[in-house]
């Protein structure tokens, strides 16, 4: 059975300036042991979708008017709050971007790790502490036993992110959502953390949703990719196919803006314009004001996510041309 299946998910935010449609009909799925990378600029709705899956959206102002989130075949959105709480942290867990602000500054890391066992498994304080040490060792934190009583600010950025990972792994969940897990880290530490995450994923056969805007990270670890723009998925494909031949001008633009050694000295490509204001998304295809291939039909008609062969999809009227180029 599919581990997680999001179907036609919509998320609105009701603000003073009106309704902001942050997510407009997103569908994706993850199998056990599979890594789905969700790619997009800030404000594309990638994090909001993940928060809706975790059930940590602020509601209000957030609202889910439509959609299904099937986890092991059961719709999370129709469950009671208590049922969902028991799944959160235990069966699906989330890793946040900035571990320093995501960890509680006044509680020791041992307490925060141990809390998972105390709340979900009813472990005693002592058992919880022992398990916290075990977890810290598993994510390769040196001198775990001595550091279990330290506070988050006493660790380096990379070590803190390892603690976040340890917390997510604590109860060996089936699904992990990592929201830009390496963005706040140094490049060398980024690689170590990603490697650790990939190792642990393999060990426990977990599904992983990796939310990122870092194309380099995606190429290394992901199995398939969903590219989001203005609250919709504009392209979905396997990693190799997507990198080899993108079927949407936006994806193509993203790939072309990666600096490459063989292009040294030439001007770096950049997608023109800015991501849209989500309160005023352009009509038709939301990407048309920035698209080099835009024509009249793009301004008026919203392209559906069309099948582009072998499990691929592209929401572009002219995907054939884009692929053929």
């Amino acid at each position: 059975m599919t581990l997680l299946e999001v179907r036609d998910l919509h998320v609105d935010f009701h603000t003073r300036d009106g309704v902001v449609k942050a997510v407009n009909g997103v569908s994706y799925s993850v199998e056990p042991g599979e890594t789905l990378a969700v790619l997009g600029e800030s404000g594309s709705g990638k994090s909001v979708t993940a928060q809706a899956v975790m059930g940590i959206l602020d509601m209000p102002p957030g609202r889910i008017p439509k959609g299904e989130i099937l986890f092991h075949g059961r719709d999370l959105l129709t469950m009671s709050a208590e049922e969902r709480r028991k799944i959160r942290g235990a069966r699906m867990a989330m890793i946040f971007q900035d571990a320093l602000s995501a960890l509680n500054p006044v509680l020791t890391v041992g307490y925060q790790l141990g809390e998972m066992f105390r709340v979900h498994q009813g472990a005693s304080r002592k058992e919880a502490k022992a398990k916290a040490v075990e977890l810290m060792e598993r994510v390769r934190i040196p001198a775990a036993r001595a550091r279990v009583g330290d506070f988050p600010h006493q660790f380096s950025g990379g070590m803190r992110q390892r603690i976040m990972i340890a917390m997510a792994l604590a109860l060996e969940p089936d699904l992990i959502i990592a929201d830009e897990p390496t963005t706040a880290l140094d490049v060398t530490v980024q690689a170590q953390v990603m490697e650790l995450l990939a190792d642990l994923q393999r060990e426990f056969n977990m599904g992983l949703i990796l939310i990122t805007h870092d194309l380099g990270v995606v190429a290394d670890v992901a199995d398939k990719i969903a590219v989001m723009y203005a609250g919709r998925i504009v392209e979905t494909a396997g990693v190799k196919e997507l990198y080899r031949s993108p079927a949407h001008p936006y994806t193509k633009g993203l790939l072309d803006s990666i600096p490459r050694l063989d292009q040294k000295g030439k001007e770096l490509y950049a997608i023109q314009g800015l991501p849209p204001n989500m309160a005023k998304v352009p009509g038709g295809c939301a990407f048309h004001p920035r698209c080099p291939a835009a024509r009249d039909v793009c301004r008026t008609e919203l392209p559906p996510l069309a099948a582009v062969g072998d499990g691929r999809g592209s929401a572009c009227h002219f995907w054939k041309e884009t692929l053929g180029e």
Binding site: M54, I56, R85, K86, I87, R88, G89, A90, A93, M94, F96, D98, S101, A102, L103, N104, P105, E115, M116, V119, H120, M167
Partner: peptide, 12 residues
């Protein structure tokens, strides 16, 4: 952020 983390951990 740490409150969001606490909620994501499934704490009551």
């Amino acid at each position: 952020d740490y409150i969001r983390t606490a909620v994501a951990k499934g704490l009551p």
